[in-house]
Structure formats: structure tokens, C-alpha cells
Design a protein around this nucleic acid. Structure first.
Lengths: 215, 215
DNA sequence: TAGATTGTTAATCGATTAACAATC
DNA sequence: TAGATTGTTAATCGATTAACAATC
């Protein structure tokens, strides 16, 4: 008895799963029913052992000489990530990035169903963006409960991010996908995943610097 | 003689630099002229040794008992990343995400100057988006040379990403910031940095799954 | 001086890769 | 059967963390 160790998987491996999934869906569409690690590794520029380890994480079992069954592997990855069912999400902050995310059709095939958006701007409230209603912040708590939203997407300016996060947490949201540069404070019962463009830009800049100054 | 080993820095450390920079700029605006690792680590939720190692990478030297001089540390980070001068960038693919990036003012304070955009859509060509001209793809090579663009931002649909990348490489671009899900092929002389939303979503989904199913 | 803080060397931890046994 | 491929255990590599010496 007591709290389970809550088996944790390597983040780098989890991050690679969508890469596999994309390739596998292509292969599936082409009617291929089996694929080997060698093939996947070759195509994605990874090591064969790494691919095997990553895939093993999802519970899939391959067959020597044959490889992995494509449809079963797709199912295994989707089920491991919870992408076999749609998770209800809402978005706060209908600026440029928020609007782009509302219009990004791909999330649907990745387990995320963005149902409604919220903003403080009276010019935006009442409109529909990519088919989704933009409601006032005051409606957040009630609507979130109504639709049983589990994920909150934060695309507000930095100054508003923590305040919005508090509202999301109080509204019963369990995961926050944060596109603002702020380090959000949340209770342990809520998960935060950050997407910070400038972090990625730093790596780009540093590597560009390096190839430009052969010093 | 011979090719230098080209000293490489840990990617995780480089990715953390914008986090430090953001805090330091805040402190600087408040007029603080020195800051300790303890303070930084506390504020960002990191370890003090990690902060020291990361900052040491930029060449900054601190003073025991005092800490680091804030303005000098900002300069050190900016110069390490090449953010002390604007790097000229162009963007290809003026869809939702592309437009959002064109309007994202923050990149200017992170060394990136997005000068012009390109698209294939006749409805978009000739327009201005967030003050930037949208030109036809045919104009890419000439304009890229004219403005001496070093960075190409790829925000086109997956199907077009590799083709566009080829055009960018031929136009003399040295770094590609790729927002498409495709693994781009480029020569060794060109750097690619990927931003893939669904990779981040995978981590979010898996962690959400984990807190929802206490199993 | 005493003590806070930096800088560095050594130990730990976790992910990747290599070696090899198992199996269809 | 032979050989390709999976699955796993051990070795390596790199990043983080701990211990401690240096210094203002």
C-alpha cells in the first residue's frame, strides 16, 4: 500500500512518439501492414535501438523477422498518449497565436478538441474564430464545467498569464498548455507544459553563430 | 591545424538562457545592479549550481559575496546568442501561424528581425501583414540576397516544406526555423531548428493521462 | 575577520548506444 | 535451417547535482 511510484517515462522518448505516429499513419494510408525498426530509424534519422526502446514503452510487441504491425502500433501509440479519445480543451487569449491555434486542424488527430475560446477584448467577444465562439472571461468557470474541459491553452500576454492560470485551475482544468513566457505556478494536481518560441530561437541563434564564426 | 573541434555547448543550457534573460531584464528595469545565483535559482525554480554553470557558459564572471553585475550579465547572454545584433530573417507561408509570427513583437528583442514574407496564394501576395510585405515565391532568391537574409522561417503546410527549404538553401539562407512537422533535409552548412507543437502536446497528454489514471 | 557567494572537481543520475541472446 | 529482426542487459555518454576549495 501507499502512493505508487507512478512509473515515469523518459520525456525525450515521449516527445518522439508523434514523429513515429506521423510516419506510421503515412505507411498505413499506403496499405503497409508491417514495418521494421530499421526502416523507421532510417527514415527518421534515428538509431534502431532507440526506436525499439521508444516503441516498447507503448506496450507494442514486434515479431522477429517481420517487424511491427502498423495498425496495432498506431493504436498502441495513440492509446499510450490518450489520443484514442478526444480530450476537451479551451483556449484563453484570441490574439494572433491563439487564433492560429484555433484554426490548426491537426490537433484533432492528436487527441485535442478545442471547443471554445475566451478573451477580455470586447471587440473579440461574441465573434466566432475558425468556427469557435469567443466568450468573455466571466463565462469561463461555468462553461468549463459544462463542457468538462480538461486542458486550458494559454495564449495571453505575459502580464495576464498567471492570473488566467488561476482562473483555469479554479475552473477545474487539469492541464495547461502554456504559450506565454511566464513560469506558471499551479497546484500539484495540475500539469503545465510550456511552449516557448524564444527558447528554440536561442538554440537556433547559437548554432547559427557557431557556423558563421569559424573562430 | 585541421578542422577545429568547434566547442559545443549543452543544448539544455542554451535553451535556459532566454529564461535568465527575461528575469535579468526585469531586474535591470527595476534598477538592480547585482544579482546572486541563489536569487535567480529561487525565482526560476532551478538549482544554484545549474544556474552558475549555465551563466559561466556565456563567459560572465561573478564576484563572491556580491553576485553578478546585471547589465554585464545581460550583455554576456545576448552576445553569446548573437542577440546583440539583429539577424535578418524572412518568413515563408503566411497562414495563421505565419501571420502570428509576423506580428510577434518580442522577436526583435531576441535578435531576430523578420523583414519580409512570401506565399504562393495570389490572395495574399501584394498585401502587408503586420507591416511586412507578402511577396510571391518567385521573388525569394533575389530579395533574400538583397536583404542578406540569414534565417528562413518555414510556416507552410507539411507537403510544401521540403520544397520551400530547397529554395531557401539555394537563396543562401544559413538557418531554418521550421514550424512544419517534416524532418527537413539540408546540407551541413545550414542549421535547422524545429518547433513542433504536437511533440509538446504528446508530453502534455501523457502527463495528463498519468494524473487522471492513478492506476 | 567571518561568512556569503562564486567556481570547479568529483559523484550521480538518466538517456543513448553497443553487444548479444532470443525467436520467428 | 539460416538469417533477419526483436528484446534486453551492459557500457557509454552527457547533463545534473553534490562536495568543497577559492575569494571578496
Amino acid at each position: 500500500m501507499g502512493a505508487q511510484p507512478a512509473k515515469s517515462y523518459p520525456v525525450p522518448s515521449v516527445r518522439r512518439l508523434p514523429l513515429y505516429l506521423r510516419l506510421l499513419r503515412q505507411l498505413n494510408a499506403q496499405g503497409r501492414d508491417a514495418v521494421s525498426c530499421t526502416y523507421i530509424a532510417e527514415d527518421l534519422g534515428l538509431g534502431t535501438v532507440q526506436v525499439r526502446k521508444d516503441l516498447a514503452m507503448t506496450g507494442i510487441v514486434g515479431r522477429p523477422k517481420v517487424g511491427y504491425p502498423v495498425p496495432a502500433l498506431i493504436d498502441a501509440i495513440e492509446s499510450f498518449l490518450g489520443w484514442d479519445h478526444a480530450t476537451v480543451a479551451l483556449l484563453v487569449g484570441v490574439g494572433g497565436l491563439g487564433s492560429a491555434i484555433l484554426g490548426y486542424e491537426d490537433f484533432k488527430s492528436h487527441g485535442l478538441n478545442i471547443v471554445v475560446a475566451f478573451d477580455v477584448d470586447p471587440m473579440k467577444i461574441g465573434r466566432r474564430v475558425h468556427g469557435k465562439d469567443v466568450l468573455p472571461m466571466e463565462a469561463l468557470a461555468e462553461r468549463a464545467a459544462q463542457i468538462r474541459a480538461l486542458v486550458g491553452i494559454v495564449t495571453v500576454p505575459a502580464a495576464a498569464a498567471q492570473e488566467v492560470t488561476g482562473q483555469l485551475v479554479r475552473a477545474g482544468i487539469r492541464a495547461i498548455w502554456n504559450f506565454s513566457p511566464v513560469n506558471l505556478e499551479v497546484p500539484d494536481s495540475v500539469v503545465v507544459q510550456n511552449v516557448r518560441f524564444v527558447d528554440s530561437l536561442a538554440v537556433l541563434s547559437q548554432r547559427l553563430n557557431q557556423i558563421l564564426t569559424p573562430d
